[in-house]
Design a protein around this nucleic acid. Structure first.
Lengths: 107, 107
DNA sequence: GACACCAATAACCATTCGGTTATATGAATT
DNA sequence: AATTCATATAACCGAATGGTTATTGGTGTC
């Protein structure tokens, strides 16, 4: 699970990849050609990005006849969200410690 | 604000940089040499990473005498968190639509 | 004032990355 | 069966990335 975390971060680092993922989130499943039509890059480039997104679990594709439909899997964002919570958690913890210290100084 | 989003994602894509940020979140402000001591890379490499983290607002440094203390700024994670919420929001929205459709079909 | 220490920058290098074009594979269409 | 369409893969290329060592610029210390 924590192994995927790195893949997720890496996948989302590229704006083009984020744009593809966003679109799949917003508009639901789409074929490669449909995605390519709005991406301003070539079809092979899109396929490459999809492969990477798939590798991190952010996207999954199902074959329908001669076209493949890709859909976003928002559950794959969990490691990222978890990490953010962890980081802010550390911060709150420190804040609590400070508060505690101030209380003790008060007495 | 949405300009920083890309920088934040890019910054956090590198595991070394995430590790540095994590440490600063967990243990509070630290000097460059202290960070370097635990990073398994050279001091200039650490300085480079800190520069990038600073560029995305994730970190800020204050000079104390001859050493510079860097601290994490968890508030800079907001764009990231916001984006995640937006994405999951799209998903919920679709779910609502489906629910709505089912309701209408029910009558 | 000479010297050691801390951090930043410069110059360089190997690897990775994001893109391209060309090609292969397989499913629909005719 | 031949052809066209949809996607994936291969081979390649320039730019960006993450690291290194060497050096510089300040700030304490002796």
């Amino acid at each position: 699970m924590t192994q995927f975390r790195n893949e997720v971060f890496r996948s989302l680092a590229d704006p083009t990849r984020r744009a593809i993922f966003e679109r799949l989130c917003r508009d639901g499943a789409q074929s490669v050609s449909t995605i390519t039509a709005q991406a301003a890059i070539s079809q092979p480039a899109v396929s490459k990005h999809l492969r990477i997104l798939k590798g991190s679990g952010l996207v999954q594709g199902t074959i329908h006849g001669r076209e493949t439909l890709y859909r976003a899997d928002v559950a794959a964002l969990a490691p990222l969200q978890g990490w953010v919570r962890e980081m802010t958690g550390f911060w709150d913890e420190k804040f609590d410690k400070l508060e505690n210290l101030l209380k003790r100084m008060d007495r």
